[in-house]
Structure formats: structure tokens, C-alpha cells
Design a protein around this nucleic acid. Structure first.
Lengths: 152, 152
DNA sequence: CTGCATGCAAATAGTTTGCATGACG
DNA sequence: CGTCATGCAAACTATTTGCATGCAG
């Protein structure tokens, strides 16, 4: 994907989020817009704290509670994907809010989002095998990125 | 799998854990043995609190710190699998400590461990695509179990 | 006996909640 | 202008840590 395409996609994501908000009569405050913009545009799967720090650049009085509340709202609207890790370090992807695989470096925490042959057939297989309805999933691989393999 | 086979497997799992401990000169206290036994035998993916409560039946003075410390130890030894959920409710599988898929009911929290066509080829694909080394993964499906589909 | 494990309490981290004040629509 | 969002602080939950005492090897 070229840089210009990516920039366009970020705008589109933001527009989608705003549409969802408007559709449900939620208010658009400056702080909210800032948080949505960060989430729509970031490809680094930021933590709450990282989002918090960045928002504070523009709105220094923003509280972390607002960040949490906004994220909770977006989760309800399915406009953000939550990546939960066992050590309690959650990260968020508002750029691609649908379930998709991740490859995570256990040393430097860098995360990639590689394209992959669909996992949907696996969902189908699970459904047939267990009788569960499947509404979402997660598929994450843990290892070491090329740089961290070298420096270890 | 028949009940007797399952019972045998649980014993074997416990033996494996004990061997790992012995191999590294860790001590075997009654509390530890109780925790290992629960983890080796449980198919319900218990939480720390559930393990804690059960251990206390036999050893009422056991502290929750001991449960955490024992689990941390087993994690290091790769003898327990940690299932981390975004809401901060971690569950543990000592019966099958290797990565494997789960199907989780979002209402009653029941978890199944269905057999599945190997995910290892996906790991390989990820490795080739990203240059990461892949040492573990997780694959979890979320939905509603048959009972909860009815009662909703 | 010697050192690692336990148990207790305090500390920490991430997140949530209550409520008075502020501002979007 | 009414209502929902914000910001602050306090509350909460899960987990970790420090340290004196206990017990396995």
C-alpha cells in the first residue's frame, strides 16, 4: 500500500467512526475527535497511556478517564479492536477494527499485521464442531522480530 | 477419550510437572503439590481465584501469593498455558500446556478445546512473511454456546 | 542445618466509578 | 438550555513484592 493510499484510508476510517457516533446521537467533543483521529490513524497498536500522552499534546487537561470512556464507547460500536495481553498491557487498533492476525515481538513489542489466508473457514469448522455461534476470534503469533534476533 | 484414559493422562501430566520441578532442584511442598494437582487435572481452565479456593479446602492457610508464585514458576517451565482475556480475567490450563485453540462462550464463559487441523503451517507462513521467529501462538474463538443461544 | 518456599501485608498497575462542572447540539 | 461528556479523585481488581518465619532436602 502506498503512502497516499494509506493516508486516504485513515481519513476514511475516521469518517466511518464519526458516522457511527452521529448515527447514535453521541456528541463530538474536541477531545473525542482527537482520540478518534489517533486511533483511526495509528498503525502502532498504541496503549491507553500512549494515546493519553498524545492527546495531552493538544488538550493538556484531558483526563485518562476520558480516554478509557471513549475507547469503551468505540468497543461497543465495534470501531476499535482490543488486543489484550496476559501481562495486562492492552493495545488498540482503530485502523483495522475487525479481527485479524498479529505477529508480536516478545522483546521489543513490535507488532505486524500480515495478510493471511482467511481464518473464516476455521470459524466455520469450530461452529460445526462445537455448536457455538462464533462472532469473533483472535489469532496472534509470538516470537522475535529480525532485529531482536540479532541483538540477543 | 474415555474416562479412564483421561484419568491416566492427568496422572501423567502431574508426573511431568513433578519431573520438571525435580530436574531444576525446586522444592515440593504440600501446597505446591496441591496446586500442581489441580492444574494437571482441571479441564475447566480455572482462574487464580478458583485454584486458590480449591487449595484452601486442603490447606486453609494457603495465601494467594503462593498460588501466583507457583503459576509463575510453571509458566517459566512451560508446564501451564495462560489464557489471558482483555477484561483481566486470566485462566490457566495445566492439562494441555501447549498452545491450542479455544472456543469461548461470552455469556457463561464455558470453554471448549476442540481438536483442529494444525495451525503450525500458519506459523510457518507467518515466519516466512515477517522474518519473525515464532515460538508460540494463540487462537481463540468467541461466541455463544448452545445453551446460552437458547436462553437469550 | 541451610536456603528456598510460605504467608501476610503493603505496594503497584490498569481500569472503573461517582459526582460536580462544563459545553455540544 | 437540557443533557451528555469531561475531569478529578477515590474505589476496585488483579497481581507483585518485601520480609520474617517455616520446613523440605
Amino acid at each position: 500500500m502506498k503512502g497516499t493510499e494509506r493516508a486516504k484510508w485513515k481519513e476514511e476510517r475516521l469518517a466511518q467512526m464519526l458516522a457511527k457516533l452521529k448515527g447514535r446521537d453521541f456528541r463530538l467533543t474536541p477531545q473525542r475527535l482527537a482520540i478518534l483521529t489517533i486511533l483511526a490513524g495509528s498503525e502502532e497498536h498504541p496503549t491507553v497511556d500512549e494515546i493519553y500522552t498524545e492527546v495531552r499534546n493538544k488538550f493538556p487537561t484531558t483526563s485518562i478517564a476520558t480516554v478509557y470512556k471513549t475507547i469503551a464507547l468505540l468497543k461497543e460500536l465495534n470501531e476499535v479492536l482490543e488486543l489484550g495481553f496476559p501481562d495486562g498491557s492492552n493495545r488498540y487498533d482503530g485502523n483495522r477494527p475487525y479481527p485479524h492476525p498479529h505477529v508480536i515481538c516478545m522483546k521489543c513489542r513490535k507488532i505486524l499485521d500480515p495478510e493471511i489466508a482467511s481464518v473464516d473457514q476455521l470459524s466455520e469448522e469450530m461452529k460445526n464442531k462445537t455448536g457455538y455461534t462464533i462472532s469473533s476470534h483472535r489469532l496472534d503469533f509470538f516470537g522475535l522480530c529480525p532485529e531482536c534476533q540479532h541483538n540477543s
